[in-house]
Design a protein around this nucleic acid. Structure first.
Length: 423
RNA sequence: GGAGAGAUGGCUGAGUGGUCGAAAGCGGUGGUUUGCUAAACCAUUGUAGGGGUUUAAAUCCCUACCGGGGGUUCGAAUCCCCCUCUCUCCGCCA
């Protein structure tokens, strides 16, 4: 959510910023609702003031006296009018809130212009992704792949995109989770094990609701949402709270399975481990002072990158252009690993600064040491990392002629062996 | 799942229809005293929104907020209904 004062006082600035995201927004409509809301508010407040004054006067009058009775009669009309106006105000408030929720976050000045994913800027390139590997094949074509990553059984038991991980497959998943959590903890992120279902208020605070409910699995009885990422419960940890300024930045990480309906996905994007309905991810989250959030974003990206480096995977860093930036982000880097068999980049992490967009929805504030007043903080999050595509890249890049996959040195202590075997 | 009890400001806790944004205590902040600390004493002490004034801040005025939502009433922290959460007991269960 944006600051209502900002759109009121600098509508042109907001309009220009939203244009950078190439989104259609009826800002004038929002401003019109805001104007009528303020007019109605003043009316209602005047009526309430009248009631309050009468109330004080009546308190000192004898209950049954003629003056008292006259006052009651007089105030009945005021009361009815106030009730009517308040109902009207309430409807306007609801409209205003909906309108505000429909406004996207504004991109940072450093976000490049652009409309499509092709316009994203390659910020950095690491490792030798371009060396020829004539024998590399897509991971799902590796003989024996189904033994370790059983999509058929998963489809039978649940549905497409819910694989079983078996034997070394399951072991690799466990090793990666453990590795990521250990590394992130060393980097200063406190480990959290979050709830896997959240309520509507939480999903609204992080921006999944309204509009994106189709992307989440929802329970029928209790109206809980299966989390699409640990970002949702983690960010909401401090919802409606005021944190001491000296505690900032707060850094936390969480492993969780993630559940996504992925309505509308198709083609090569969804083959094998590329896109699943349930997958494992370790998420990094920071709650920071507004003045430091862009430095913290660089730090977050570095923390995420270090994991890829330790896994010895070639990767690149993309700086997302305005048009490819999400609804809620101010600035975002995507980290993509090279998958030698598919000969394509796979996104394994997305590091974003939300500025106060989520914090305003969630009312997460800190008490300023200078002013003593609560102020909205900034939230950032990034993956550290999402597992399936990391696994895909490891399988495709490290497969040797004996159908063995070399486990990166840093991961060996967690996996327990130097090779994963399909035989 | 069943029965009961609760939810009040940073915390504890009073308040069962009207000058209650809310007693008291604790904590916080400022001050007096003090060689320093402590103690004592005095003062002060929430959040949000709107409006006036201002270059801005400060300040001033108004309104709302006693778990959330609705209702009764001229008037609700207080009465009624629904919901959420916490606690106790019973049942069930990893």
């Amino acid at each position: 959510m944006l600051d209502p004062k900002l759109i009121r006082e600098s509508p042109d600035l907001v309009r220009a910023a939203i244009a950078k995201k190439h989104l259609e927004v009826d800002l004038d409509g929002v401003l019109a609702i805001d104007a009528s809301w303020r007019a109605q508010l003043q009316e209602v407040e005047a009526l309430r003031g009248k009631q309050k004054a009468a109330n004080t006067a009546m308190a000192s009058l004898p209950k049954g006296s003629p003056e008292f009775q006259a006052k009651v009669g007089e105030m009945k009309a005021v009361s009815a009018q106030a009730k009517e106006r308040e109902a009207e105000l309430k409807r306007t408030e609801e409209k205003f809130r909906e309108a505000m929720l429909s406004l996207p976050n504004l991109p940072h000045a450093s976000v490049p212009e652009g409309r499509t994913p092709e316009d994203n800027v390659v910020h950095a390139l690491h490792g030798a992704h371009d060396q020829p590997r004539p024998h590399a094949i897509p991971h799902w074509e590796i003989p024996g792949f189904e033994k370790l990553f059983d999509f058929s059984r998963g489809a039978k038991v649940t549905g497409a995109g819910f694989p079983f991980y078996v034997g070394d497959g399951a072991r690799l998943v466990r090793a990666l989770i453990q590795f990521f959590l250990e590394e992130n903890t060393k980097a200063g992120y406190v480990e959290v094990n979050p709830p896997l279902f959240v309520n509507a208020a939480s999903a609204t605070a992080t921006g999944q609701l309204p509009d994106k409910e189709g992307q989440m699995y929802e329970t029928t009885e209790d109206r809980f949402y299966a989390i699409p990422t640990a970002e949702v419960p983690l960010t909401n940890f401090f919802r409606d709270e005021i944190i001491d300024e000296s505690a900032l930045p707060v850094k936390r990480c969480a492993y969780s399975p993630c559940f996504r309906r992925e309505a509308g996905s198709y083609g090569k994007d969804v083959r094998g481990l590329n896109r699943l309905h349930q997958f494992d991810k370790v998420e990094l989250l920071k709650w920071v002072h507004p003045s430091t959030s862009y430095d913290e974003l660089e730090g977050l990206r570095a923390d995420s990158e270090r994991l890829i480096q330790k896994l010895e995977l070639p990767y690149r860093v993309l700086l997302m252009c305005g048009g490819d930036l999400g609804f809620t982000q101010s600035k975002k880097y995507d980290l993509e690993v090279w998958s030698a068999g598919q000969k394509r980049w796979l996104e394994v992490s997305s590091c974003s600064n939300f500025e106060a967009f989520q914090a305003r929805r969630a009312q997460i504030r800190f008490r300023s040491a200078q002013t003593g007043k609560p102020e909205l903080l900034h939230t950032l999050n990034g993956s550290g990392l999402a597992l399936p595509r990391v696994i895909a890249a490891l399988l495709e890049n490290n497969l040797d002629v004996d159908r063995r996959v070399k486990i990166p040195t840093a991961l060996v202590p967690y996996f327990g062996r130097e090779y994963l075997s399909f035989t």
